[in-house]
Design a protein around this nucleic acid. Structure first.
Lengths: 132, 132
DNA sequence: ATCAATTGCGTTATGCTATAACGTGTGCGA
DNA sequence: TCGCACACGTTATAGCATAACGCAATTGAT
């Protein structure tokens, strides 16, 4: 599951996300890559699908956007559940991990015999700078 | 913030959600209410907006769907963060609350001076019956 | 009582998000 | 060299959500 060499499209999409200072929607990525020959949403979605699989990109469910993983070079899948704080004003995203939260949620799923596949934790609000 | 009497449309939408055995998309709700005169998505979305505000309905961000709160009569907003386990096979949803998780996330946001407005916790996977 | 503000409602139109279905080319192992 | 897996390109379509307009009913202050 670690990331193999990226294909051309995957590299382009990843590059856009890494250089962005916040999450981007698939269509925003598409627009940024039109100069590189991108024409259709599927080109973006297919690349994103792989990047998500490799753990180098995260999807923010609550805002339908994508962001590069904050741990360049590492496989984020090994960090346990990833949590995000998303500023609704400046759209900056902070990524963090909390093992105690992981344990509590795992305890719950175990007690219910629920087989968790993918867990989303997203906190929306205002970052320190924007809340001032 | 507690729920005032519902308007006709709000009551219709809430009723559909309460009788459903799982989360419904806005457009599914719309289809179920065509016989009651609903014609446009906005009629559903506007009702949902209020029901969410009143805390009697939850939005599941990861599947773009809505579900009636599992605590009929109570205002769910007072229970702290709401977490959901969503079965990807039978689409059954379990709603739960974990104060320890709340505390850990609040500790994090406090330490970052992040002003949380709305927190999403959604676990997707397979329920006990479907995992068998 | 009346006017203004608020709220809910209906409609049309539009925009944003995501995937289905088809076909092409390339590389690689049986 | 055949078959398979995979990335890619294109067109079309499905699914989710809101903008903008106008109207009606309610409320509440003057």
């Amino acid at each position: 599951m670690s990331a193999p060499a990226l294909t051309k499209n995957q590299a382009l999409v990843f590059d856009v996300l890494e250089k962005a200072d916040g999450p981007l929607s698939a269509y925003t990525i598409l627009d940024k890559l039109r100069d590189h020959g991108f024409r259709a949403p599927l080109q973006v979605y297919r690349a994103l699908e792989k990047l998500l699989e490799y753990g180098v990109v995260h999807r923010l469910e609550s805002i339908n956007s994508f962001v590069a993983c904050a741990h360049p070079g590492e496989n984020c899948h090994s960090h346990g559940i990833v949590a995000f704080a998303i500023c609704e004003s400046c759209s900056q995203v902070m990524e963090f991990h909390d093992h105690e939260v992981d344990h509590r949620l795992m305890d719950w799923t175990r007690s219910k015999k629920f087989k968790a596949e993918k867990t989303t934790i997203e906190i929306r609000g205002l970052c320190e700078a924007c809340a001032a």
